[in-house]
Write a protein that binds this DNA or RNA. Structure first.
Length: 272
DNA sequence: CCGTAGACCTGTGTGC
DNA sequence: TGCACACAGGTCTACG
């Protein structure tokens, strides 16, 4: 579900309520949720810690806790992190009680989400977190980086942009939106893009993500902000979810294809 | 190393 | 109404 703008929004929403709070109780009901360490150790490690920092890296939520412990959370497709609970909220998988009486809930319909609680030296257990590429909104992500990493690649640019080691935080919505903005056909082999196209692509990724953060993320179905409200960027989407509808730029019927194993929407006229 | 299909899990929407 | 199938903001793994 959540891509970079959604995770960023959740982190920003929750930070004021979590910073400097002590975790007084940890409950995990879903045995699939905790990836490292075991569930018992996870509870023991977190209980009593103070939340000193609260941030994001790619689509991961990163909590810096007292004692040097890090709490890492990935929401995958349908995970939700909610402060206190909307009435009727289902799929409760875990809860953290804070010392001011608030409760941070983790809910997840499809149960793909993961959490880790690790100390320095235990990074080998973190999977893809170790291999993340640059943050798309940082200067490290630019057309030079793209040129270097895309050289010789035959896979569709759509698939390559979903690879979190190329750039951290893009998912199905914002890849389609960025490729539309850059005027690039999603099926183009990554290595075939020219310098001007790479410039446009890097700029488009930054622009789309910046605007989506301003719009507090895209709510299609599952995504909710930290206090339970939906985002607003769905009203500004140009292509995602709009196949069969007219292109907002040229009027042509938007088409749908499969790329990178994902449904991909594009404009056959604007994206050659 | 590269690229793609299938797996993980639980639900919703669609067509017959 | 029932049933089968496609599809869903993500990643891993296995295989050619």
């Amino acid at each position: 579900m959540p891509e970079l703008p959604e995770v960023e929004t959740i982190v920003r929403d929750l930070a004021p309520f979590l910073l400097n709070r002590r975790i007084v109780r940890v409950q995990v009901w879903d045995p699939l949720l905790v990836r490292y360490p075991g569930r018992q150790d996870f509870n023991r490690r977190l209980t009593g810690r103070i939340i000193l920092g609260w941030g994001r890296r790619g689509k991961y939520i990163v909590g810096r806790l007292s004692g040097g412990l890090t709490l890492l959370i990935h929401l995958r497709m349908t995970g939700r992190l909610l402060l206190n609970l909307a009435p009727g909220e289902k799929y409760q998988r875990a809860a953290l009680d804070l010392d001011d009486g608030a409760r941070l809930w983790y809910c997840d319909l499809r149960r793909f989400g993961d959490m880790w609680a690790y100390w320095p030296g235990e990074e080998e257990h973190l999977g893809g977190f170790n291999a993340l590429g640059p943050e798309p909104l940082s200067p490290d992500f630019n057309s030079r980086w793209l040129a270097q990493r895309l050289a010789g690649r035959k896979a569709p640019i759509k698939a390559l942009l979903l690879d979190q080691s190329l750039v951290a935080g893009l998912g199905n919505i914002y890849v389609d939106e960025a490729l539309f903005l850059a005027g690039i056909f999603p099926g183009r082999p990554g290595g075939s893009l020219g310098p001007r196209e790479l410039d446009a692509l890097a700029a488009s990724v930054k622009e789309v993500l910046t605007r989506a953060i301003e719009g507090r993320g895209t709510t299609f179905r599952d995504y909710r902000r930290g206090l339970g409200t939906p985002g607003e960027f769905q009203h500004q989407l140009q292509v995602y979810g709009r196949s069969g509808q007219p292109c907002l730029r040229c009027g042509e019927m938007l088409a749908r294809m499969r790329a990178g194993g994902r449904t991909t929407v594009y404009c056959p006229r604007c994206q050659q």
